[in-house]
Amino acid sequence: MRFDLIPLQEFIKNNAKTPTKDIIKDFKVKINEFLSQASKVNEEDYDYQKKEISIFLEKTYNYKTNIKGNKNNFIKFIIICTAKDFFIIDAKEYKKPFC
Rank of each mutant, 00 (worst) to 15 (best):
K50R: 12
L35C: 12
K25G: 02
K96W: 02
F98Q: 07
I12F: 00
K17N: 02
N42D: 12
K76T: 15
N42K: 06
I31W: 02
D4V: 13
T18M: 01
D85K: 01
K96P: 02
K76N: 15
K30G: 06
T20G: 04
I78N: 07
Y94A: 14
E44Y: 14
K64C: 04
V41L: 10
K51I: 10
V41Y: 15
K59D: 05
K68F: 08
S36F: 08
K71Y: 15
I88C: 09
K68M: 05
I55Q: 04
Q49A: 14
E10D: 15
N66F: 12
I79N: 06
E93H: 11
K92C: 13
I78H: 05
K59E: 08
K28S: 13
K64W: 06
K92P: 06
K28D: 13
I31R: 03
C99V: 15
K84F: 06
C99I: 14
T18C: 01
T65N: 07
Q37I: 03
K51G: 08
Q49E: 11
F86I: 09
C81K: 15
I78V: 15
N72V: 14
E52H: 08
K25C: 03
E93G: 11
K17W: 00
N66D: 12
K51M: 14
A16N: 01
K64G: 03
A83T: 07
F98W: 09
I78M: 10
F87H: 03
D4N: 14
E58W: 13
F27S: 00
V41K: 12
T82I: 03
T65H: 08
F11Y: 02
L8A: 04
E93K: 12
Q37D: 10
N72K: 09
N73Y: 12
I79C: 07
L5M: 13
L5F: 13
L57Q: 03
N73C: 09
Y63R: 02
L5K: 15
I89C: 03
E43D: 13
S54T: 07
L57S: 05
A91R: 04
I78F: 06
K30V: 06
L35K: 14
Y46N: 11
I79P: 04
